[in-house]
Design a binder for these strands. Structure first.
Lengths: 248, 248
DNA sequence: CGGTACATTGAAGGGGCTCAATCCACGTGG
DNA sequence: CCACGTGGATTGAGCCCCTTCAATGTACCG
């Protein structure tokens, strides 16, 4: 239950590619030391410079941008096991800020260490670069949500993506999870007003797709919801490990 | 004017980082042989597998997804010098299709070659990985457009981004360029109907921000437009080369 | 000269926003 | 133990931005 090495990142990657005990140990080793960040604090501040990646080990964070008049867009949601320094670490100054929604535990990986890993353990480093690609795919999917889907489709897609991602790190069971965002934040992620998020959730509830008990989301009809939202979990999985690790 | 080696990619990267003649030659060397793809053909088809990157050398292409009922979202626009196999090449199957809008010239770089480059010429390879980060940043900016900006702001931001990107490869002068997209395609990129794109362009014209002459867009008030759209070109430039290339 | 592709403009309707009020759970201090 | 403040959820009413439907214009091309 409480194995010595089982960080969310390693847990997530192990589902996608066969990791040797050695690989897992290296990945876990990357993630220390850790530090604690309090709720509502910024993990990354826009316009400042960062020399490495952060790995979120515990807690929830959001990457967002606030426009001059207060409108906010949440770009993505970081859950345990996610890396949150990309693409900031490639730029002279971070483009967006990342804020902890809950108390969080993070570990930072200096860029130099990542490059070193690339030379010495290309197999492990490749999994990390893969997660960058996966993140880009989530941005793209998010873009389709906001650009072309109706509010019901958006919310449905959002809830399913969160379900699958939380499952990958053991924070959701077969069909339910603790919703880490308020309705206002869901709205800021999906380009909707908080009132409309509320109405949309009610509609999905009335149509039997889901149930909400306090902060717990229960998906009652995954297939129906997935059809409604055209949700296909392929963009969250399906890593091509064989070819990448072979030449290393 | 017609130097032997001056691919758009090299031209673009040379603006961002000091490339030696050797670096440039390696980059240019990556981009051969080339092949021609006809207008309206798919460069990459969703659900099929690709073993490498494509570099767009000439022409315009779009990455897009069509929903079941025909709604389409354009995820990004590829112009000469762009790489279009990311993130597809990291997945078992491409997630989105890429279509040539004009006759195009492309070159493909097998994944193995890219990994080899990473070992032998980390300095050059780093610039390529940087462009992945830059692409992720464009997705994020695009997301803010579609999620939280009004139609005028969206169109303004879109036109400015295109201006700056085309300038980087010598396809735009100080304030004007040939618009490669129809109004319908602009709508599909920005999550607007084609009629509303038309009305919005008219409004921007009437307010003196721009002029349109056939397919040519002339920005008459860049600063005003940039203020309106909160456009900041930082996300298209500002590579941290110093630290990345030093350890190599 | 008819056909196709694209731009343009009008009119009407709707999805989602804004404004506004209420309710509830929770924590804190008196 | 209760008053109160706060953060969040919920619901209603009216409105507006953008969509849809529809028609016309215009260039280009076989």
């Amino acid at each position: 239950m409480n194995s010595p090495v089982a960080t969310p990142l390693t847990q997530k990657l192990a589902r996608l590619v066969p990791l040797t005990a050695m690989d897992a140990a290296i990945l876990d080793g990357l993630q220390s030391p850790t530090r604690v960040v309090a709720r509502h604090r910024e993990l990354i501040s826009a316009s400042t410079k960062y020399d490495g990646l952060l790995i979120l080990i515990e807690g929830i964070a959001i990457r967002s941008r606030v426009l001059h008049d207060g409108r906010r867009q949440i770009l993505n949601i970081a859950i345990p096991g996610d890396m949150i320094g990309f693409p900031a670490c490639f730029f002279e100054a971070a483009l967006y800020s990342v804020t902890a929604l809950t108390d969080a535990v993070v570990s930072s990986v200096p860029f130099a260490r990542l490059l070193g890993l690339l030379e010495e353990q290309p197999r492990v480093a490749a999994t990390i670069f893969w997660s960058f690609a996966c993140e880009a795919a989530m941005y793209a999917e998010h873009l389709i949500d906001v650009g072309r889907r109706s509010s019901v489709e958006r919310v449905a897609h959002f809830l399913l993506e969160l379900l699958v991602r939380l499952q990958a790190v053991g924070l959701a069971d077969e069909s339910s999870y603790h919703m880490p965002l308020t309705q206002e934040l869901i709205g800021d992620a999906l380009g909707l007003s908080l009132q409309h998020v509320n109405r949309t959730l009610r509609q999905l509830r009335e149509e039997g797709f889901l149930a909400i008990d306090g902060q717990t989301i229960v998906i009652r009809n995954i297939d129906g919801l997935a059809a409604l939202a055209e949700f296909d979990r392929a963009y969250l999985g399906c890593f091509r490990m064989a070819e990448l690790s072979a030449p290393g």
